[in-house]
Amino acid sequence: MTIKVIRPGLLTSVQDLGRYGMQKDGVIVGGAMDLFAFRLANILVGNQEEKAALEIMMLGPQLEFLENTLIAICGGQLSPSVDGQPIPEWRPVLIKKGGILSFGAMKTGCRAYIAITGGIDVPEVMGSRSTYLRAEMGGFQGRSLQEGDVLLTGSPSKWAIRTLHRLVGNSGSSLVAASKWTISQSVMPIYRNNPVIRVIRGGEFQWFSAKSREQFFKTDFWVTPQSDRMGYRLNGSELKLSEQNELISTAVTAGTVQVPADGNPIVLMADRQTTGGYPKIAQVATIDLPILAQVKPGEIVRFHEIQLEEAQELLRVREWGIQLLKQGVQLKD
């Protein structure tokens, strides 16, 4: 399949599950910010989960499909449409040759994934196809998409070809047709604006003053405009250590909530550096990273403490749901 970029949108990049195994060399993990939506988008077009897809942010791109193509859009509601006809998210959609996919108003969330059957065909760099913007490598020529770029895709699965043919049969003269089924809400994260985010205590939680520890869980934090794929800079109660204490630089991870000397916490996201030296007050539970990934600047977040065992159990339950769903999708024919 061939896809032409008519307008690139605000920040459209090729992403996948991330780049693992080289953090010890300072190579960031990167990959999709909302891994749940990313994985689901791939599953819904019959792709293996590691295939590359497009991550779009706030203002989506305009893409022309030069052949009949099966796609799925998952994540934030960014009002996708084909030639003026709105199309649903979280299900397989056929876009016929000549169809132009556009996006409109941002209704909920701010990031969505466009998976294309067969996956975006870009070279693997250091074991991943995700775009490493700062090092200008990986993804599509190491950068976000630009006007005139032409994307190629890999071979679709047999399931995808059958689904595509069935939708072509149902589409009549329309340039677009969506499957009648979608996925169960029960497996989905509860995406909402101004969410409460579950965290476990960070390694230096006890370093913070009693007041700051209380404020961290009881007050609102505002997501500032200086928030991006690397990290969310928050503003709210000034979080202070009970005494001056220096941390020796060490590894950090997705969801690390670190607090520099100014007292404003930073939550590390997909494009985080591999190491850091600020005290860590908390760690966002992996289960809630997709929800946080959909929060945009200007929103308010609150943090709620859970225990490590619960955080891991929630992940296992979610994974079980995803695996069931994956089998269910393959049986839809």
Binding site: Q23, S249, A251, T253
Partner: peptide, 13 residues
Amino acid sequence: IEFVPAFTTVTIY
């Protein structure tokens, strides 16, 4: 998954 050695720590993912 992987590990990261640092000044005084080793972190294992």
